[in-house]
Design a protein around this nucleic acid. Structure first.
Length: 591
RNA sequence: GGGCGUGUGGCCUAGUGGACGAGGGCGAGGGGUUCCUAACCCCUCGAUCGCGGGUUCGAAUCCCGCCACGCCCGCCA
């Protein structure tokens, strides 16, 4: 009801200002701090004081007096407090929130009839996914989920750089070196086996004699030219390496879970002549220049030219990515790309060039994140430095399992967790902790990876929030409504004759108010492409629930209160479960 | 050198013009379970919001300068 209330307040405030003959373009609507009973407030009186010639509190009082709460559904009263106009929630606000949150899909906003493609990860298929890159799939997947909740029609894409020099080097190395000369793979998985060739190839190119390196380089060149010429054999050779490595990487990403609707290969835009067609149009632009045998763009606002066709007539990564984005414009209403901060300049150039080509680049946006580094420096697949995402997830699951096992004897709840439960919880908590740790921070902030900090299971972590969900399920279960893992989607018997009136304590009201905010949180996270605000919300909601849990017994309450509190617990459960789902963290039914 | 980003108690982090007299967490110290799961809760300790100017009735938030750190400035991807 928060969103509805907000628009109701907007309308009322606008009318009041007009009635007072005051400008109404700045309503100054904001959310008051926790210790204020209002749901919304306006600080417009600050700015209007000069115009009116009266101090802000007097103006606020006038505004408050000009609004008749009797005309409003979700506002009970309008009060002036200092320079603020406060809007206090009505019984209908609480009642309808309680009712709305009984829906299993609470927080899911209406369909917007707008398609959006979220491209994320898109790491070159050179080897195991390492932690330095792990922010990309986690932020990308969370963003896709949030957009989904916000009513967009979402596709998730992984753009595969399968036509670059790295893949040519990889293909040459794979065909050249013998497995007997390679170290044992770190894991029994294709990308771990394959990366050994890649590393061997790269060190050969750095260390071998000049003439041997030149021989290798000519083979690598031949592969690249084969791709450019549309040579089927070249595609097949590179494709084998790419598909094998990518298959292994997908398994790892799937553990997060981060899944994709499509793996879009850049060679696709070479084979279907889209790149060639694009190059023709680029050459025709006013900004196109032909210098030193290469076609370039003199982009306005950029220091250096952007080369889009090499002197040997081959295309570059950026050229193909332009064709790729033209395809996105054709296929989707909007496109979001999650990129490392090192791609900022390239993204700006891409944007500017697409604009020159006549595309509406307002439909295109990027989310940038900075790398996760180790205390001793960066991570590199080629050099084999860094921590594999698989190892991080395994370690986290192991620690979570130890945690569950160490608690099992002192648990006060008598639900007898069996082996399957322990394993389930270890996975939900272990992986959830890693995801939450990453998704809850602003992407632009740098992260230095430290095991103990990343895998803290206490306050301000996924387990803290997950525990609240488990508590909700525990109460439900005690009340005779068991929640099935995975599909906790049974109709609620208390729905229908809901009454929020018995929920009279501060703890209950505050919890309900927090639940009411959830759809607006989703909306904001989607609009601003900032999934981390959902993570922040889960924590606030969990804190509010814990206050309620401490102060308000549910099962032992009198029948009317019990019914209302059970409904409140369900409302909280849906908000928590869906908020966690929106950031891709599992909601365990027991812990 | 130029561009972009980041800078909030010892450490991590929220807040990005208005009730901030800055909210959490970790840490340190103290307390809480005959009661729906203590991965919890309560209390105490601890911050000139990097530094210096400016704009504003009002600045952690906007502008300018400086400092520190990160990233980028390829006919690589």
């Amino acid at each position: 009801m928060f969103r509805q209330t907000r628009s109701e307040v907007e309308t009322a405030l606008e009318a009041a200002l007009e009635a007072l003959d005051l400008p109404s373009e700045d309503l100054g609507i904001e959310e008051p701090p926790e210790d204020v009973a209002a749901v919304l407030a306006s600080s417009a009186a600050f700015r209007l004081a000069g115009e009116v010639g009266a101090p802000p509190p007097a103006v606020a009082a006038d505004i408050a007096a000009a609004i008749d709460p009797g005309d409003l559904t979700y506002v009970d009263s309008v009060e002036q407090r200092g320079p603020y106009v406060n809007f206090l929630p009505s019984d209908a606000y609480f009642g309808e929130t309680l009712a709305a949150a009984q829906a299993e899909d609470y927080g899911q906003l209406p369909d917007r009839d707008t398609s959006v493609v979220v491209e994320h990860t898109s790491a070159n298929p050179t080897g195991p996914v390492h932690v330095g890159r792990a922010r990309n799939p986690i932020i990308g997947d969370a963003l896709a989920r949030v957009l989904d909740y916000a009513g967009y029609d979402v596709d998730r894409h992984y753009y595969v750089n399968d036509a670059g020099r790295q893949m040519a080097v990889f293909t040459w190395a794979y065909e050249t070196f013998d497995e007997d000369d390679l170290p044992e793979p770190e894991r029994d998985s294709p990308e771990y086996e394959m990366v050994r060739y890649y590393r061997k190839g790269n060190s050969f190119l750095e260390e071998a004699d000049a003439d041997r390196v030149e021989d290798a380089e000519s083979e690598i060149r031949a592969i690249l030219q084969g791709l450019e010429a549309g040579d089927e054999d070249a595609y097949e050779r590179v494709g084998e390496v790419v598909d094998t490595v990518l298959g292994g990487m997908s398994e790892t990403l799937g553990r997060l879970p981060a899944e994709f609707d499509e793996f879009v290969k850049e060679t696709r835009f070479m084979r279907n002549d889209a790149t060639e067609d694009l190059v023709d149009r680029l050459k025709a632009l006013d900004q196109a220049v032909y210098e030193e045998d290469a076609w370039q763009l003199d982009l306005p606002g950029f220091e250096k030219n952007l080369v889009f066709l090499r002197s040997d007539g081959t295309s570059l990564y950026t050229t193909r990515d332009l064709a790729h984005h033209e395809w996105k414009f054709d296929t989707y209403d909007r496109a979001v790309t999650v990129l490392g901060e090192d791609h900022k300049l390239q993204a700006d150039q891409l944007d500017t060039t697409l604009d020159l080509l006549g595309h509406d680049t307002d439909q295109l946006s990027q989310v940038f994140y900075s790398w996760v580094n180790l205390p001793e420096g960066g991570m590199s697949t080629r050099e084999g430095t860094g921590i594999d995402l698989d190892d991080l997830l395994d370690e986290s699951i192991d620690r979570a399992r130890e945690e569950v096992e160490s608690r099992i004897d002192t648990r006060s709840r008598d639900d007898d967790l069996d082996e399957t439960d322990v394993e389930r919880i270890a996975h939900q908590v272990g992986i959830g902790a890693v995801r939450y740790d990453i998704v809850s921070k602003q992407p632009t902030k740098g992260i230095t990876f430290e095991w103990d900090r990343a895998l803290d299971f206490e306050a301000q972590s996924a387990p803290y929030v997950q525990y609240v969900h488990a508590r909700c399920c525990g109460i439900r279960s005690e009340a005779g409504h068991a929640v099935e893992e995975g599909k906790e989607r049974e109709p609620d018997s208390t729905a229908g004759d809901l009454d929020a009136a018995p929920l009279a304590t501060d703890a209950e009201r505050d919890l309900l108010r927090e639940i009411a905010r959830f759809p607006a949180v989703i909306e904001r996270a989607a609009d601003e492409h900032r999934p981390h605000v959902v993570a922040t919300y889960t924590r606030t909601l969990a804190e509010q629930f814990n206050t309620f849990y401490r102060e308000c017994p549910v099962l032992d309450a009198d029948p009317d209160t019990k019914r209302a509190r059970l409904a409140l617990v369900d409302a909280a459960r849906h908000a928590i479960a869906n908020a966690l789902d929106a950031i891709g963290v599992a909601a365990p039914r027991s812990m």
